[in-house]
Design a protein around this nucleic acid. Structure first.
Lengths: 317, 317
DNA sequence: ATGAAAGCGCTAACAT
DNA sequence: ATGTTAGCGCTTTCAT
C-alpha cells in the first residue's frame, strides 16, 4: 500500500481501482487517519485560507457582512482567518504583516481602503474590497450616493423643510468612505429640490453611537435646528434618537430621524432607515474572491443583481 | 551564506555572530524576503492558529466576546480562524471537521457545549470554553445563577409582586445553557423572598428577538400577567420592549423589563440590565488557551478576578 | 559560529 | 493501476 496511492484515493483520482479505493478508505476509517492540512498546503502551494480584515467596532453592520462572508467561505472550503481592526495602527499591521501570500490565498477587506502603497504591496495576492473602493481593486459596493438621495427624497416627501446630516469625518483615521458618498447624494438631492443651502446643516465626526450624540447636539443647538436628520448609519441614528429623547423632543413630530443599513436594532426600535444588503455584499465579496483565487471568471457572479437600496419607513419619520 | 544560518538569525538564536546577523538581516531587508508561514508550521509541528467556534447570530454579545478573543490572540501571535455556527448542523461540522490538531493549535468555543462524544474526540487538542461548561474542559463563565438572583432582587426592590421570565428553551438545538442558569437563580431568589409560585410565570423558546416577542406575548396574555419581566439576554429584552410598545404598555409603569449582558443597545435604549464582562471573558478564554498551548501554568491568569456582575439600572425598571 | 543534510506530511511526476 | 521519489520551505541535529 504505497503512499502515493493513498494520496490519490484522498484526492479522488480516477487512476485507482475500485478495489483498492474501498480498501484504503476502510483502513483510513479504521485508523482514524486524517491528512495533515498544513503539509498539504505546503505541497500544493496554497493555504486554503482567506484573510478577512474588518473593523469590528463598527458592528453590527460589519458583523452582518461577515456572516455572509463566512457562509460562502465555509461552503467553498476555505478557512476564514479574521483580523479585527480597532485602531489605525492595527489597520496598518493588517496590510503589512497579515496580508501575505504565504499565509492566505486571498484577502477580503471590509470598509477599510488600503493606501496606494499598500495596494502596491498586495500585488500577487487576490484581493476583494467590500463597502469601499481603492486602487482599482475588485470591490463590492452598494450605491451609497443613491442611498443618500433616497433618504432626502423620503424626508422631502414627509414635508420637511430643514435638514441635517450626521456622518463620519471625511478624513477619518480609518478611511471610511461610504458616509461621504451618502452625504453627497443627500445634499445633492436636497439642493436639486430647491432647498436653500442655509436650511441644510451637517455635523461630521468619528464613527460611533456616543460620538453621534455630540454631533446631534451640535445640530440641535443651531440657531435654526433641522426638523429632520439623516444619519449615515443606524448606529449613529441611535445616538440621534438618544439625544432627542434626552431633550424631550418627540419623534417624528419635533424631529424626524432616518438611518442607514437596516440592522436588527433598527427594526426593533422602529427606526426608518435606508436598507442595504449587508449579508449579500459580504457573500458576494467572498464569492468573487474565491473565483479569483481559483481562476474562475467572475462574470456569472456579477450577473445576479444585489437587492437594491430602499427606504424602510417606520416610526421615526 | 547557509540556509541554516538564516534560520538561526530569524529565530534569534544565540549561536550566530553579530557580524553575520546584521549582514543577513540587511540582505533580508533588501530582498524583501519573508519566511513561509506554512512551511515553518510544518517543520515546527504547530500551526500558530487558533480555531474559534461561535454562534454569530446571537450577536452582539458573542461579537463583544470575539473582540476580546481577537485582541489577545493577535497579541500572542496566533491567527484566529473563525467558524460561524448558525445551524445545529454547522455546530456538529465545527467539532467534527474543523477542530483538528493539524489545522489549529487550540480551540476556543463560545456558548456551544460539545457532546461527551465530541469532547472525547477533542482529546489532544487544547480547548477552552467560554460561557458554557462541558466535560471537564477548561471554561470561562460568569456566575449566571447569581446574575439571575440580582435581577430578581432588583425587581423585588422596585416593589414588584408578579414576575415573568423569558429565555432559551432548556433543550434548544444549540445547547445554550446560560439562560437556564439565570432562570434558576431568578426563580430561586423569588421563591426565597416569599413570592408565591402562582405569581411567577415563564416562557421559554428559541433564542432571538423575534422569538422573544412571541414569548412576551404569551406572558402578557396570561390571566395574571407579570408586572415585570426578566429576559435572559438584552436581545430578548428588546423583543419584550417591542411587544410592550405595541400593546401600548408604559415602561416601566405598566411593565418593567430587565435584560442581561449590557450590550451597546441596552445603553442606547435605557434598558436596565445585568451587566456581565463580555470582552473580558473572551480575552480570558484566549489567554487561557494560549497558556495551555504553550504549556504555561494558567494560575496567574485566574488570579485577576473578572469584573463582577451587577445591575445597571436605567429607564425600564 | 557556520554549513550540510535529514525530515515535517503531503502531492505530483515518473517509473513500472 | 500502483510504487517510488523529488520537492514544497522551513527547523534542527550533526559535523566541522
Amino acid at each position: 500500500v504505497g503512499v502515493g496511492t493513498v494520496s490519490r484515493v484522498l484526492n479522488d483520482s480516477p487512476r485507482v481501482s475500485t478495489a483498492t479505493n474501498t480498501k484504503v478508505r476502510s483502513v483510513i476509517e479504521e485508523l482514524g487517519y486524517r491528512r495533515h492540512h498544513g503539509a498539504r498546503s505546503l505541497a500544493l502551494g496554497r493555504s486554503h485560507a482567506v484573510g478577512v480584515v474588518a473593523p469590528f467596532f463598527t458592528s453590527p453592520s460589519v458583523v452582518e457582512r461577515l456572516r455572509g462572508v463566512a457562509e460562502r467561505l465555509t461552503r467553498a472550503g476555505y478557512d476564514l482567518v479574521l483580523f479585527d481592526v480597532e485602531t489605525p495602527r492595527q489597520r496598518a499591521e493588517a496590510f503589512a504583516g497579515f496580508a501575505r501570500p504565504d499565509r492566505i490565498d486571498g484577502l477580503l477587506v471590509v470598509s477599510l481602503p488600503p493606501t496606494p502603497d499598500e495596494v502596491a504591496r498586495l500585488r500577487g495576492l487576490p484581493v476583494v474590497l467590500v463597502d469601499v473602493v481603492a486602487g482599482g481593486l475588485t470591490s463590492v459596493t452598494t450605491d451609497d450616493h443613491r442611498g443618500g438621495r433616497l433618504a432626502a427624497e423620503h424626508l422631502l416627501a414627509r414635508g420637511h423643510r430643514s435638514f441635517g446630516f450626521i456622518g463620519d469625518d471625511v478624513r477619518n483615521a480609518f478611511g471610511f468612505t461610504s458616509s461621504e458618498r451618502r452625504r453627497e447624494g443627500y445634499l445633492g438631492a436636497l439642493l436639486e429640490a430647491g432647498v436653500p443651502p442655509e436650511d441644510v446643516s451637517e455635523a461630521l465626526g468619528p464613527h460611533g453611537r456616543r460620538e453621534a450624540r455630540s454631533l446631534a447636539d451640535a445640530l440641535l443647538d443651531l440657531e435654526k435646528p433641522p426638523s429632520a436628520i439623516f444619519a449615515a448609519s443606524d448606529v449613529q441614528a441611535l445616538g440621534v434618537l438618544e439625544v432627542a429623547a434626552q431633550r424631550g423632543l418627540r419623534v417624528p413630530d419635533d424631529l424626524a430621524v432616518i438611518g442607514f443599513d437596516d440592522v436588527e436594532v433598527a427594526a426593533a426600535l422602529g427606526l426608518t432607515t435606508v436598507r442595504q444588503p449587508l449579508f449579500a455584499t459580504g457573500a458576494r465579496g467572498a464569492d468573487l474572491l474565491v473565483a479569483a483565487i481559483e481562476g474562475r471568471p467572475p462574470a456569472e457572479l456579477r450577473s445576479t443583481p444585489l437587492e437594491p437600496l430602499r427606504v424602510v419607513a417606520r416610526r421615526t419619520t
